[in-house]
């Protein structure tokens, strides 16, 4: 159970209806600071709808989303724009701007949200592209690169602002296994280095068990399992067990994750770093 002071995101009784179709049936969950929560579930379970609410791209029919103590549905457009500066999102369909080069896509949030010089923007954007292994494509347009490269550019764009809350919508879909593990490592690195809170939606169970502090499993708009990977594996629910076994994941993999820092340790470090910056 999370200490309430460590709660970064709190979802309370979240209901979403489109007409007479109910997508989310009163979800409750708390995501701790510097925690990586992986949301799994079959197609149509409501995973994407959930993350769209977390970043206020959708307004709840009922319930609320509280981030850093603020109900984001109650914010005005201007307040929401300010709050979003602390969020980042990696989109399932990359969402790169067609009219800009790869470099300009990554530089875009820096140009929009910071007062950095063009030289610093160039340096930061190129560093991030290099970390993702796509710096050679900086001058190309999104239509000239492969899907896997576009995914990595999308991740670079989300990471370049070093946000406090990062939401990944299927970050490894469409990537080869080697690149998928690189992306997992990057998600881990953001957590370790910057104490970033991450919410990851994925079908990739290897990725889920590799990076999750906790896993939430959604079925038909309801949370049927929520806990550490070991707890989710032990859940006595036919749907959960069926989903995990049919994914073919080797459940022993995550037994080797003993050296991982806890979310609480990372959150404390992030707070110290923030206090240091403020001084």
């Amino acid at each position: 159970m999370l200490d309430s002071t460590d709660a970064h995101v709190v979802v309370e009784g979240l209901v979403k209806r489109y007409g007479d179709r109910t997508i989310l049936h009163g979800l409750d969950m708390t995501i701790g600071r510097a925690e990586t929560l992986v949301v799994i579930g079959g197609s149509g379970a409501g995973k994407s709808t959930l993350v769209r609410h977390l970043i206020a791209l959708e307004r709840p029919t009922a319930g609320r989303i509280v981030i850093d103590g603020t109900d984001i549905a109650s914010l005005s457009d201007v307040q929401l724009a300010k709050a979003r500066r602390r969020f980042g999102m990696v989109f399932q369909k990359y969402a790169l701007f067609d009219s800009m080069s790869v470099f300009d896509n990554v530089a875009f949030p820096l140009r929009e949200q910071t007062k950095l010089s063009e030289k610093d923007i160039r340096e930061k954007a190129m560093t991030k592209l290099k970390e993702l292994g796509v710096d050679h494509a900086a001058s190309l347009m999104p239509s000239q690169i492969s899907g896997g490269m576009a995914k990595r550019v999308g991740i670079a764009r989300a990471l370049v602002m070093e946000p406090e809350l990062l939401i990944y919508d299927e970050p490894t879909s469409g990537l080869d296994p080697v690149t998928s593990r690189t992306v997992d490592a990057l998600i881990e690195e953001m957590r370790e280095r910057f104490g970033v809170t991450s919410v990851v939606i994925t079908h990739d169970m290897v990725s889920a068990f590799d990076i999750a502090d906790r896993i939430a499993m959604l079925i038909k708009g309801r949370v049927v399992a929520l806990g550490s990977p070991a707890e989710v594996l032990a859940v006595d629910n036919a749907d959960v067990q069926g989903f995990i076994s049919s994914s073919g994941v080797d459940v022993k993999r995550f037994e080797h994750r003993g050296n991982r820092k806890t979310a609480a340790e990372l959150a404390a470090r992030a707070r110290e770093r923030k206090a240091g910056r403020a001084e």
Binding site: L57, F87, M89, F91, Q92, K93, Y94, A95
Partner: peptide, 17 residues
């Protein structure tokens, strides 16, 4: 096309109206 490829959502998440 920008709406269907989530580019408009991307703008919003980057605090650009």
């Amino acid at each position: 096309n920008m709406r269907s490829s989530e580019q408009i959502d991307a703008l919003e998440t980057m605090a650009v109206n």
